[in-house]
Design a binder for these strands. Sequence first.
DNA 1: CGGGGTCTTGATCGTCTTCAATAAAAGTGG
DNA 2: CCACTTTTATTGAAGACGATCAAGACCCCG
Lengths: 252, 252
Amino acid sequence: MEPTATVLDLNQLRRSCSSCALHELCLPAGIDADDLNRLDAAVKDKRMLDRGAMLYREGDRFDALYVVRSGSLKSFVQNEAGDMQILAFHLPGEIIGFDALASNQHVSQAEALERSSICEQPYAHLQRVTSEVPALHRQLMRVISREVVEEHRHLMVMGRQQAQEQLATFLKSVADRHQRLQRDSTTLNLSMSRYDIANYLGLVVETVSRLFSRMEEMGVLEVNRKSVRILRPDLLAGLCRTGAMSKQKDAG
Amino acid sequence: MEPTATVLDLNQLRRSCSSCALHELCLPAGIDADDLNRLDAAVKDKRMLDRGAMLYREGDRFDALYVVRSGSLKSFVQNEAGDMQILAFHLPGEIIGFDALASNQHVSQAEALERSSICEQPYAHLQRVTSEVPALHRQLMRVISREVVEEHRHLMVMGRQQAQEQLATFLKSVADRHQRLQRDSTTLNLSMSRYDIANYLGLVVETVSRLFSRMEEMGVLEVNRKSVRILRPDLLAGLCRTGAMSKQKDAG
DNA sequence: CGGGGTCTTGATCGTCTTCAATAAAAGTGG
DNA sequence: CCACTTTTATTGAAGACGATCAAGACCCCG
Protein backbone atom coordinates (compact mmCIF):
# COMPACT_ATOMS: atom_id res chain seq x y z
CA MET A 1 0.00 0.00 0.00
CA GLU A 2 2.44 2.68 1.15
CA PRO A 3 6.05 2.23 0.12
CA THR A 4 7.04 4.81 2.73
CA ALA A 5 6.96 2.14 5.38
CA THR A 6 9.46 -0.05 3.59
CA VAL A 7 11.90 2.79 3.13
CA LEU A 8 11.70 3.66 6.78
CA ASP A 9 12.42 0.07 7.78
CA LEU A 10 15.54 -0.06 5.71
CA ASN A 11 16.83 3.06 7.36
CA GLN A 12 16.05 1.82 10.82
CA LEU A 13 17.85 -1.37 10.05
CA ARG A 14 21.16 0.45 10.15
CA ARG A 15 20.55 2.03 13.46
CA SER A 16 21.09 0.71 16.93
CA CYS A 17 18.51 0.11 19.61
CA SER A 18 19.14 3.44 21.27
CA SER A 19 17.85 5.20 18.23
CA CYS A 20 15.17 2.65 17.51
CA ALA A 21 11.81 4.29 17.17
CA LEU A 22 10.37 1.56 19.36
CA HIS A 23 12.90 1.65 22.13
CA GLU A 24 10.53 3.08 24.68
CA LEU A 25 7.93 0.49 23.90
CA CYS A 26 9.87 -2.68 24.38
CA LEU A 27 12.43 -3.65 26.95
CA PRO A 28 14.19 -0.41 27.78
CA ALA A 29 11.18 1.46 29.15
CA GLY A 30 12.36 3.44 32.13
CA ILE A 31 15.99 2.71 31.50
CA ASP A 32 18.64 5.41 31.15
CA ALA A 33 20.94 5.99 28.20
CA ASP A 34 23.86 4.20 29.78
CA ASP A 35 21.92 1.00 30.36
CA LEU A 36 20.52 1.26 26.89
CA ASN A 37 23.94 1.13 25.36
CA ARG A 38 24.81 -2.04 27.19
CA LEU A 39 21.65 -3.63 25.93
CA ASP A 40 22.46 -2.37 22.51
CA ALA A 41 25.71 -4.24 22.45
CA ALA A 42 23.88 -7.49 23.03
CA VAL A 43 21.82 -7.20 19.91
CA LYS A 44 23.10 -9.75 17.47
CA ASP A 45 21.50 -8.59 14.30
CA LYS A 46 18.35 -7.32 12.70
CA ARG A 47 16.72 -9.87 10.48
CA MET A 48 14.27 -9.39 7.68
CA LEU A 49 11.54 -11.96 7.23
CA ASP A 50 9.44 -12.28 4.13
CA ARG A 51 5.76 -12.97 4.35
CA GLY A 52 5.27 -16.60 5.33
CA ALA A 53 8.81 -17.03 6.62
CA MET A 54 9.22 -18.73 9.98
CA LEU A 55 11.04 -16.97 12.80
CA TYR A 56 11.18 -20.19 14.80
CA ARG A 57 9.51 -23.58 14.78
CA GLU A 58 8.38 -25.92 17.49
CA GLY A 59 11.37 -27.70 18.95
CA ASP A 60 13.89 -25.09 17.84
CA ARG A 61 16.53 -24.40 20.41
CA PHE A 62 15.98 -21.21 22.35
CA ASP A 63 18.72 -18.71 21.92
CA ALA A 64 17.11 -15.34 21.62
CA LEU A 65 14.13 -13.16 22.25
CA TYR A 66 12.87 -11.18 19.30
CA VAL A 67 11.46 -7.69 19.05
CA VAL A 68 9.23 -6.82 16.13
CA ARG A 69 10.61 -3.62 14.61
CA SER A 70 8.20 -3.44 11.73
CA GLY A 71 5.69 -5.74 10.13
CA SER A 72 3.84 -8.37 12.12
CA LEU A 73 3.80 -12.05 12.98
CA LYS A 74 1.51 -14.74 14.22
CA SER A 75 2.46 -17.41 16.71
CA PHE A 76 0.64 -20.70 16.83
CA VAL A 77 0.70 -24.34 17.84
CA GLN A 78 -0.23 -27.44 15.90
CA ASN A 79 -1.58 -30.74 17.14
CA GLU A 80 -0.73 -34.19 15.84
CA ALA A 81 -3.37 -33.89 13.13
CA GLY A 82 -1.82 -30.66 11.91
CA ASP A 83 -4.63 -28.45 13.12
CA MET A 84 -3.35 -24.97 13.78
CA GLN A 85 -4.37 -22.73 16.64
CA ILE A 86 -3.14 -19.16 16.54
CA LEU A 87 -2.07 -17.97 19.98
CA ALA A 88 -1.31 -14.34 19.26
CA PHE A 89 -0.50 -11.69 16.70
CA HIS A 90 2.61 -9.63 17.25
CA LEU A 91 2.86 -5.99 16.27
CA PRO A 92 5.88 -3.67 16.23
CA GLY A 93 7.42 -3.10 19.62
CA GLU A 94 6.23 -6.44 20.90
CA ILE A 95 8.51 -9.24 22.05
CA ILE A 96 8.29 -12.87 20.97
CA GLY A 97 9.93 -16.05 22.08
CA PHE A 98 8.97 -16.32 25.74
CA ASP A 99 7.41 -19.70 25.15
CA ALA A 100 10.88 -21.23 25.16
CA LEU A 101 12.14 -19.57 28.33
CA ALA A 102 11.43 -22.50 30.60
CA SER A 103 12.31 -25.52 28.51
CA ASN A 104 15.02 -23.92 26.40
CA GLN A 105 13.24 -24.89 23.25
CA HIS A 106 10.25 -23.40 21.51
CA VAL A 107 6.87 -24.96 22.08
CA SER A 108 5.14 -22.84 19.46
CA GLN A 109 5.94 -21.39 16.08
CA ALA A 110 6.17 -17.86 14.77
CA GLU A 111 5.56 -16.83 11.17
CA ALA A 112 5.72 -13.44 9.51
CA LEU A 113 2.40 -12.13 8.21
CA GLU A 114 4.16 -9.63 5.95
CA ARG A 115 7.68 -8.51 5.27
CA SER A 116 8.94 -7.81 8.77
CA SER A 117 12.04 -6.52 10.47
CA ILE A 118 13.03 -8.40 13.58
CA CYS A 119 15.50 -7.37 16.25
CA GLU A 120 17.23 -10.37 17.79
CA GLN A 121 18.29 -10.31 21.44
CA PRO A 122 20.57 -13.29 22.15
CA TYR A 123 19.36 -14.61 25.42
CA ALA A 124 22.78 -15.34 26.87
CA HIS A 125 23.71 -11.69 26.49
CA LEU A 126 20.33 -10.49 27.63
CA GLN A 127 20.62 -12.59 30.75
CA ARG A 128 23.98 -11.06 31.56
CA VAL A 129 22.69 -7.55 31.05
CA THR A 130 19.49 -8.05 33.02
CA SER A 131 21.42 -9.51 35.93
CA GLU A 132 23.51 -6.33 36.03
CA VAL A 133 20.68 -3.90 35.42
CA PRO A 134 17.82 -4.54 37.82
CA ALA A 135 15.56 -2.06 36.04
CA LEU A 136 15.90 -4.01 32.85
CA HIS A 137 15.20 -7.25 34.62
CA ARG A 138 12.02 -5.83 36.13
CA GLN A 139 10.98 -4.55 32.75
CA LEU A 140 11.51 -7.96 31.18
CA MET A 141 9.46 -9.58 33.92
CA ARG A 142 6.73 -7.03 33.36
CA VAL A 143 6.61 -7.90 29.69
CA ILE A 144 6.44 -11.62 30.38
CA SER A 145 3.69 -11.03 32.88
CA ARG A 146 1.71 -9.06 30.32
CA GLU A 147 2.07 -12.04 28.03
CA VAL A 148 0.53 -14.34 30.64
CA VAL A 149 -2.34 -11.94 31.26
CA GLU A 150 -2.91 -11.72 27.54
CA GLU A 151 -3.21 -15.50 27.24
CA HIS A 152 -5.74 -15.49 30.04
CA ARG A 153 -7.70 -12.80 28.23
CA HIS A 154 -7.63 -14.89 25.07
CA LEU A 155 -9.10 -17.85 26.92
CA MET A 156 -11.75 -15.63 28.44
CA VAL A 157 -12.71 -14.24 25.04
CA MET A 158 -12.91 -17.67 23.44
CA GLY A 159 -14.76 -19.21 26.31
CA ARG A 160 -17.27 -16.62 27.34
CA GLN A 161 -17.92 -14.26 24.44
CA GLN A 162 -19.90 -14.79 21.31
CA ALA A 163 -18.66 -14.20 17.82
CA GLN A 164 -19.48 -10.51 17.45
CA GLU A 165 -18.11 -9.65 20.86
CA GLN A 166 -15.00 -11.62 20.06
CA LEU A 167 -14.32 -9.77 16.84
CA ALA A 168 -15.02 -6.42 18.50
CA THR A 169 -12.60 -7.31 21.29
CA PHE A 170 -10.00 -8.35 18.76
CA LEU A 171 -10.31 -5.11 16.79
CA LYS A 172 -10.21 -3.03 19.94
CA SER A 173 -7.07 -4.83 20.99
CA VAL A 174 -5.38 -4.05 17.70
CA ALA A 175 -6.53 -0.44 17.88
CA ASP A 176 -5.23 -0.06 21.43
CA ARG A 177 -1.86 -1.43 20.42
CA HIS A 178 -1.76 0.99 17.50
CA GLN A 179 -2.40 3.78 19.93
CA ARG A 180 0.53 2.74 22.10
CA LEU A 181 2.62 2.98 18.96
CA GLN A 182 1.38 6.55 18.53
CA ARG A 183 -0.20 5.49 15.33
CA ASP A 184 -3.65 6.33 14.13
CA SER A 185 -5.71 3.91 16.15
CA THR A 186 -8.81 4.37 14.02
CA THR A 187 -7.32 3.24 10.73
CA LEU A 188 -6.16 -0.33 10.97
CA ASN A 189 -4.31 -2.23 8.33
CA LEU A 190 -4.90 -5.82 9.26
CA SER A 191 -1.95 -7.82 8.03
CA MET A 192 -3.51 -11.14 8.93
CA SER A 193 -6.01 -12.91 6.69
CA ARG A 194 -9.65 -13.49 7.57
CA TYR A 195 -8.68 -17.12 8.03
CA ASP A 196 -6.14 -16.12 10.64
CA ILE A 197 -8.60 -13.93 12.50
CA ALA A 198 -11.19 -16.70 12.43
CA ASN A 199 -8.68 -19.25 13.64
CA TYR A 200 -7.48 -16.99 16.43
CA LEU A 201 -11.06 -16.56 17.66
CA GLY A 202 -12.15 -20.15 17.15
CA LEU A 203 -14.56 -19.30 14.33
CA VAL A 204 -14.76 -20.02 10.61
CA VAL A 205 -13.81 -17.52 7.97
CA GLU A 206 -17.37 -16.97 6.74
CA THR A 207 -18.52 -15.93 10.17
CA VAL A 208 -15.75 -13.37 10.46
CA SER A 209 -16.49 -12.01 7.02
CA ARG A 210 -20.17 -11.68 7.85
CA LEU A 211 -19.39 -9.94 11.12
CA PHE A 212 -17.26 -7.37 9.33
CA SER A 213 -20.16 -6.71 7.01
CA ARG A 214 -22.62 -6.49 9.87
CA MET A 215 -20.47 -4.07 11.83
CA GLU A 216 -20.16 -2.00 8.70
CA GLU A 217 -23.94 -1.91 8.32
CA MET A 218 -24.19 -0.85 11.95
CA GLY A 219 -21.97 2.09 11.14
CA VAL A 220 -19.22 0.98 13.47
CA LEU A 221 -16.64 0.21 10.83
CA GLU A 222 -15.73 1.01 7.28
CA VAL A 223 -14.26 -2.16 5.85
CA ASN A 224 -12.18 -2.51 2.74
CA ARG A 225 -10.42 -5.84 2.70
CA LYS A 226 -7.39 -5.48 4.94
CA SER A 227 -8.14 -1.84 5.63
CA VAL A 228 -10.55 -1.24 8.49
CA ARG A 229 -11.52 2.21 9.70
CA ILE A 230 -13.18 2.48 13.07
CA LEU A 231 -15.91 5.08 12.64
CA ARG A 232 -17.42 4.76 16.10
CA PRO A 233 -14.87 3.65 18.72
CA ASP A 234 -17.54 4.11 21.38
CA LEU A 235 -19.86 1.62 19.74
CA LEU A 236 -17.00 -0.79 19.17
CA ALA A 237 -16.14 -0.67 22.85
CA GLY A 238 -19.76 -1.38 23.63
CA LEU A 239 -19.78 -4.42 21.40
CA CYS A 240 -16.93 -5.92 23.39
CA ARG A 241 -19.05 -6.20 26.50
CA THR A 242 -20.67 -9.54 26.88
CA GLY A 243 -24.26 -8.41 26.39
CA ALA A 244 -26.63 -9.38 29.18
CA MET A 245 -26.72 -13.13 28.62
CA SER A 246 -23.51 -14.96 28.28
CA LYS A 247 -22.72 -18.46 29.45
CA GLN A 248 -22.15 -18.28 33.17
CA LYS A 249 -20.82 -15.48 35.24
CA ASP A 250 -19.24 -15.84 38.61
CA ALA A 251 -19.78 -19.30 40.02
CA GLY A 252 -20.54 -19.65 43.72
CA MET B 1 -17.11 -40.24 49.79
CA GLU B 2 -14.27 -42.30 51.23
CA PRO B 3 -12.97 -41.30 54.65
CA THR B 4 -9.83 -43.34 53.96
CA ALA B 5 -8.42 -40.48 51.91
CA THR B 6 -8.82 -37.99 54.73
CA VAL B 7 -7.06 -40.18 57.22
CA LEU B 8 -4.16 -40.66 54.87
CA ASP B 9 -3.85 -36.91 54.42
CA LEU B 10 -3.61 -36.30 58.12
CA ASN B 11 -0.82 -38.78 58.40
CA GLN B 12 1.05 -37.38 55.46
CA LEU B 13 0.71 -33.96 56.98
CA ARG B 14 3.21 -34.85 59.67
CA ARG B 15 5.77 -36.09 57.28
CA SER B 16 8.36 -34.24 55.33
CA CYS B 17 8.69 -33.96 51.58
CA SER B 18 11.19 -36.78 51.41
CA SER B 19 8.52 -39.18 52.53
CA CYS B 20 5.74 -37.49 50.59
CA ALA B 21 3.93 -39.98 48.43
CA LEU B 22 4.03 -37.47 45.64
CA HIS B 23 7.66 -36.55 45.82
CA GLU B 24 8.59 -38.18 42.58
CA LEU B 25 5.80 -36.46 40.77
CA CYS B 26 6.47 -32.86 41.63
CA LEU B 27 9.68 -30.94 41.86
CA PRO B 28 12.18 -33.52 43.06
CA ALA B 29 11.95 -35.90 40.13
CA GLY B 30 15.41 -37.10 39.39
CA ILE B 31 16.91 -35.56 42.49
CA ASP B 32 18.91 -37.50 45.06
CA ALA B 33 18.15 -37.84 48.75
CA ASP B 34 20.63 -35.20 49.79
CA ASP B 35 19.13 -32.56 47.55
CA LEU B 36 15.70 -33.58 48.66
CA ASN B 37 16.50 -32.79 52.26
CA ARG B 38 17.61 -29.30 51.38
CA LEU B 39 14.37 -28.74 49.56
CA ASP B 40 12.53 -30.20 52.49
CA ALA B 41 13.92 -27.59 54.83
CA ALA B 42 12.48 -24.86 52.65
CA VAL B 43 8.94 -26.05 53.02
CA LYS B 44 7.17 -23.59 55.27
CA ASP B 45 4.12 -25.54 56.17
CA LYS B 46 1.39 -27.74 54.91
CA ARG B 47 -1.93 -25.99 54.76
CA MET B 48 -5.40 -27.44 54.71
CA LEU B 49 -8.00 -25.72 52.60
CA ASP B 50 -11.70 -26.35 52.91
CA ARG B 51 -13.88 -26.60 49.88
CA GLY B 52 -14.36 -23.12 48.46
CA ALA B 53 -11.39 -21.63 50.29
CA MET B 54 -9.04 -19.48 48.27
CA LEU B 55 -5.37 -20.32 48.07
CA TYR B 56 -4.59 -16.95 46.54
CA ARG B 57 -6.47 -14.14 44.86
CA GLU B 58 -5.67 -11.86 41.99
CA GLY B 59 -3.27 -9.18 43.15
CA ASP B 60 -1.95 -11.17 46.10
CA ARG B 61 1.77 -10.82 46.56
CA PHE B 62 3.73 -13.78 45.31
CA ASP B 63 5.66 -15.53 47.99
CA ALA B 64 5.36 -19.21 47.35
CA LEU B 65 4.65 -21.98 44.94
CA TYR B 66 2.17 -24.58 46.08
CA VAL B 67 2.06 -28.32 45.58
CA VAL B 68 -1.26 -30.10 45.83
CA ARG B 69 -0.77 -33.01 48.23
CA SER B 70 -4.35 -34.18 48.23
CA GLY B 71 -7.66 -32.81 47.05
CA SER B 72 -7.91 -30.50 44.07
CA LEU B 73 -8.23 -26.86 43.05
CA LYS B 74 -9.33 -24.71 40.17
CA SER B 75 -7.56 -21.60 39.00
CA PHE B 76 -9.42 -18.90 37.15
CA VAL B 77 -9.55 -15.27 36.09
CA GLN B 78 -12.39 -12.79 36.24
CA ASN B 79 -13.08 -9.82 34.03
CA GLU B 80 -14.46 -6.44 35.08
CA ALA B 81 -18.01 -7.74 34.82
CA GLY B 82 -17.19 -10.58 37.17
CA ASP B 83 -17.37 -13.29 34.53
CA MET B 84 -15.20 -16.19 35.51
CA GLN B 85 -13.04 -18.27 33.20
CA ILE B 86 -11.47 -21.38 34.63
CA LEU B 87 -7.92 -21.84 33.40
CA ALA B 88 -7.06 -25.20 34.88
CA PHE B 89 -7.83 -27.84 37.44
CA HIS B 90 -5.06 -28.95 39.71
CA LEU B 91 -4.70 -32.51 40.96
CA PRO B 92 -2.35 -33.97 43.57
CA GLY B 93 1.31 -33.66 42.68
CA GLU B 94 0.73 -30.60 40.55
CA ILE B 95 2.19 -27.20 41.24
CA ILE B 96 0.29 -23.93 41.31
CA GLY B 97 1.29 -20.31 41.48
CA PHE B 98 3.47 -19.84 38.40
CA ASP B 99 1.20 -17.07 37.16
CA ALA B 100 2.87 -14.71 39.63
CA LEU B 101 6.46 -15.59 38.78
CA ALA B 102 7.02 -12.68 36.44
CA SER B 103 5.17 -9.82 38.07
CA ASN B 104 5.56 -10.93 41.67
CA GLN B 105 1.85 -10.85 42.20
CA HIS B 106 -0.85 -13.26 41.19
CA VAL B 107 -2.82 -12.57 38.05
CA SER B 108 -5.30 -15.36 38.65
CA GLN B 109 -7.04 -16.98 41.57
CA ALA B 110 -6.97 -20.48 42.99
CA GLU B 111 -9.79 -22.07 44.94
CA ALA B 112 -10.11 -25.49 46.53
CA LEU B 113 -12.70 -27.77 44.98
CA GLU B 114 -12.75 -29.99 48.04
CA ARG B 115 -10.89 -30.25 51.32
CA SER B 116 -7.30 -30.17 50.14
CA SER B 117 -3.85 -30.40 51.60
CA ILE B 118 -1.36 -27.95 50.17
CA CYS B 119 2.38 -27.94 50.48
CA GLU B 120 3.81 -24.44 50.48
CA GLN B 121 7.23 -23.77 48.98
CA PRO B 122 8.33 -20.24 49.93
CA TYR B 123 9.79 -18.85 46.77
CA ALA B 124 12.72 -17.11 48.42
CA HIS B 125 13.94 -20.43 49.79
CA LEU B 126 13.11 -22.28 46.64
CA GLN B 127 15.14 -19.78 44.64
CA ARG B 128 18.14 -20.30 46.89
CA VAL B 129 17.88 -24.07 46.64
CA THR B 130 17.37 -24.16 42.90
CA SER B 131 20.36 -21.91 42.37
CA GLU B 132 22.48 -24.41 44.30
CA VAL B 133 20.95 -27.53 42.80
CA PRO B 134 20.95 -27.35 39.03
CA ALA B 135 18.89 -30.52 38.69
CA LEU B 136 16.13 -28.97 40.72
CA HIS B 137 16.26 -25.81 38.68
CA ARG B 138 15.90 -27.79 35.48
CA GLN B 139 13.04 -29.72 36.97
CA LEU B 140 11.26 -26.51 37.94
CA MET B 141 11.74 -25.15 34.45
CA ARG B 142 10.35 -28.37 33.02
CA VAL B 143 7.24 -28.02 35.13
CA ILE B 144 6.73 -24.41 34.12
CA SER B 145 7.14 -25.37 30.51
CA ARG B 146 4.55 -28.10 30.86
CA GLU B 147 2.24 -25.42 32.21
CA VAL B 148 2.73 -23.30 29.10
CA VAL B 149 2.13 -26.25 26.81
CA GLU B 150 -1.00 -27.08 28.75
CA GLU B 151 -2.39 -23.58 28.25
CA HIS B 152 -1.74 -23.89 24.53
CA ARG B 153 -3.60 -27.18 24.52
CA HIS B 154 -6.50 -25.56 26.33
CA LEU B 155 -6.72 -22.88 23.66
CA MET B 156 -6.55 -25.49 20.95
CA VAL B 157 -9.36 -27.49 22.54
CA MET B 158 -11.59 -24.47 22.98
CA GLY B 159 -10.89 -23.09 19.57
CA ARG B 160 -10.91 -26.10 17.31
CA GLN B 161 -12.90 -28.88 18.92
CA GLN B 162 -16.60 -29.28 19.33
CA ALA B 163 -18.39 -29.98 22.56
CA GLN B 164 -18.18 -33.77 22.63
CA GLU B 165 -14.55 -33.80 21.61
CA GLN B 166 -13.83 -31.21 24.26
CA LEU B 167 -15.40 -33.23 27.04
CA ALA B 168 -13.68 -36.39 25.86
CA THR B 169 -10.35 -34.59 25.83
CA PHE B 170 -11.00 -33.24 29.29
CA LEU B 171 -11.85 -36.67 30.68
CA LYS B 172 -8.85 -38.24 29.03
CA SER B 173 -6.65 -35.57 30.54
CA VAL B 174 -7.96 -36.31 34.02
CA ALA B 175 -7.55 -40.04 33.45
CA ASP B 176 -3.98 -39.60 32.23
CA ARG B 177 -3.12 -37.56 35.28
CA HIS B 178 -4.64 -40.24 37.50
CA GLN B 179 -2.43 -42.75 35.80
CA ARG B 180 0.67 -40.72 36.53
CA LEU B 181 -0.41 -40.84 40.15
CA GLN B 182 -0.54 -44.62 39.88
CA ARG B 183 -4.20 -44.42 40.59
CA ASP B 184 -6.93 -46.28 38.82
CA SER B 185 -7.25 -44.22 35.69
CA THR B 186 -10.59 -45.70 34.71
CA THR B 187 -12.52 -44.68 37.79
CA LEU B 188 -12.57 -40.92 38.11
CA ASN B 189 -14.00 -39.00 40.98
CA LEU B 190 -14.57 -35.58 39.51
CA SER B 191 -14.27 -33.06 42.28
CA MET B 192 -15.39 -30.15 40.14
CA SER B 193 -19.04 -29.39 39.43
CA ARG B 194 -20.67 -29.65 36.03
CA TYR B 195 -20.69 -25.86 36.07
CA ASP B 196 -16.93 -25.83 36.44
CA ILE B 197 -16.41 -28.32 33.66
CA ALA B 198 -18.72 -26.34 31.41
CA ASN B 199 -16.98 -23.09 32.23
CA TYR B 200 -13.55 -24.60 31.64
CA LEU B 201 -14.63 -25.78 28.20
CA GLY B 202 -16.59 -22.68 27.23
CA LEU B 203 -19.94 -24.47 27.30
CA VAL B 204 -23.08 -24.33 29.45
CA VAL B 205 -23.90 -26.82 32.14
CA GLU B 206 -26.80 -28.43 30.27
CA THR B 207 -24.59 -29.27 27.34
CA VAL B 208 -22.05 -30.97 29.57
CA SER B 209 -24.75 -32.91 31.34
CA ARG B 210 -26.23 -34.06 28.05
CA LEU B 211 -22.81 -35.10 26.78
CA PHE B 212 -22.23 -37.25 29.84
CA SER B 213 -25.55 -38.94 29.17
CA ARG B 214 -24.76 -39.40 25.52
CA MET B 215 -21.37 -40.93 26.20
CA GLU B 216 -23.04 -43.23 28.67
CA GLU B 217 -25.54 -44.34 26.03
CA MET B 218 -22.65 -44.94 23.66
CA GLY B 219 -21.18 -47.29 26.23
CA VAL B 220 -18.05 -45.21 26.71
CA LEU B 221 -18.74 -44.15 30.27
CA GLU B 222 -20.69 -45.14 33.29
CA VAL B 223 -21.74 -41.91 34.94
CA ASN B 224 -22.99 -41.47 38.45
CA ARG B 225 -22.84 -37.85 39.42
CA LYS B 226 -19.24 -37.12 40.38
CA SER B 227 -18.20 -40.68 39.80
CA VAL B 228 -17.28 -41.50 36.22
CA ARG B 229 -16.05 -44.90 35.14
CA ILE B 230 -14.39 -45.15 31.77
CA LEU B 231 -15.67 -48.40 30.26
CA ARG B 232 -13.99 -48.00 26.89
CA PRO B 233 -10.79 -45.98 27.02
CA ASP B 234 -10.21 -46.76 23.37
CA LEU B 235 -13.49 -45.19 22.34
CA LEU B 236 -12.87 -42.23 24.59
CA ALA B 237 -9.53 -41.64 22.94
CA GLY B 238 -11.26 -41.79 19.58
CA LEU B 239 -13.77 -39.18 20.62
CA CYS B 240 -10.96 -36.74 21.36
CA ARG B 241 -9.94 -36.64 17.74
CA THR B 242 -11.49 -33.79 15.86
CA GLY B 243 -13.69 -35.91 13.59
CA ALA B 244 -13.22 -35.26 9.90
CA MET B 245 -14.72 -31.79 9.68
CA SER B 246 -13.57 -29.22 12.14
CA LYS B 247 -13.03 -25.55 11.61
CA GLN B 248 -9.81 -25.12 9.70
CA LYS B 249 -6.73 -27.24 9.79
CA ASP B 250 -3.31 -26.13 8.81
CA ALA B 251 -3.40 -22.82 7.04
CA GLY B 252 -1.16 -22.40 4.08
C1' DC C 1 -37.36 -32.92 57.36
C1' DG C 2 -37.21 -28.94 54.63
C1' DG C 3 -34.69 -26.12 51.39
C1' DG C 4 -31.03 -24.60 48.39
C1' DG C 5 -27.80 -26.09 45.26
C1' DT C 6 -26.63 -29.47 41.73
C1' DC C 7 -27.74 -32.33 38.01
C1' DT C 8 -30.62 -34.16 34.41
C1' DT C 9 -33.89 -34.06 30.69
C1' DG C 10 -37.13 -32.00 27.33
C1' DA C 11 -38.69 -28.44 23.95
C1' DT C 12 -37.57 -24.61 21.38
C1' DC C 13 -34.78 -21.09 19.48
C1' DG C 14 -30.74 -18.79 17.58
C1' DT C 15 -26.10 -18.52 16.37
C1' DC C 16 -22.62 -20.29 13.99
C1' DT C 17 -21.28 -23.81 10.66
C1' DT C 18 -21.55 -26.01 6.38
C1' DC C 19 -22.04 -26.14 1.56
C1' DA C 20 -22.08 -23.62 -2.60
C1' DA C 21 -21.33 -19.94 -5.78
C1' DT C 22 -19.32 -15.65 -7.08
C1' DA C 23 -16.13 -11.90 -7.04
C1' DA C 24 -11.93 -9.64 -6.25
C1' DA C 25 -7.11 -9.78 -5.61
C1' DA C 26 -2.66 -11.72 -6.03
C1' DG C 27 0.53 -14.66 -7.91
C1' DT C 28 2.47 -17.25 -12.32
C1' DG C 29 4.27 -17.85 -16.68
C1' DG C 30 4.30 -17.27 -21.50
C1' DC D 1 1.60 -7.11 -20.18
C1' DC D 2 -2.03 -10.02 -20.38
C1' DA D 3 -4.33 -14.67 -19.94
C1' DC D 4 -4.32 -18.07 -16.45
C1' DT D 5 -4.48 -20.10 -12.03
C1' DT D 6 -4.65 -19.73 -7.13
C1' DT D 7 -5.73 -17.60 -3.08
C1' DT D 8 -8.64 -14.63 -0.37
C1' DA D 9 -12.98 -12.52 0.58
C1' DT D 10 -17.93 -11.99 0.36
C1' DT D 11 -22.68 -13.51 0.26
C1' DG D 12 -26.70 -16.73 0.23
C1' DA D 13 -29.37 -20.80 1.67
C1' DA D 14 -29.80 -24.63 4.56
C1' DG D 15 -28.72 -27.23 8.47
C1' DA D 16 -26.70 -28.47 13.01
C1' DC D 17 -24.97 -27.80 17.23
C1' DG D 18 -25.16 -25.70 21.32
C1' DA D 19 -27.80 -22.11 24.11
C1' DT D 20 -31.83 -20.84 26.38
C1' DC D 21 -35.95 -21.57 28.92
C1' DA D 22 -38.50 -24.58 31.84
C1' DA D 23 -39.47 -28.35 34.85
C1' DG D 24 -38.43 -32.02 37.76
C1' DA D 25 -35.19 -35.23 40.31
C1' DC D 26 -31.62 -35.82 43.27
C1' DC D 27 -28.39 -34.79 46.88
C1' DC D 28 -26.28 -32.62 50.65
C1' DC D 29 -26.38 -29.61 54.73
C1' DG D 30 -28.29 -27.41 58.46
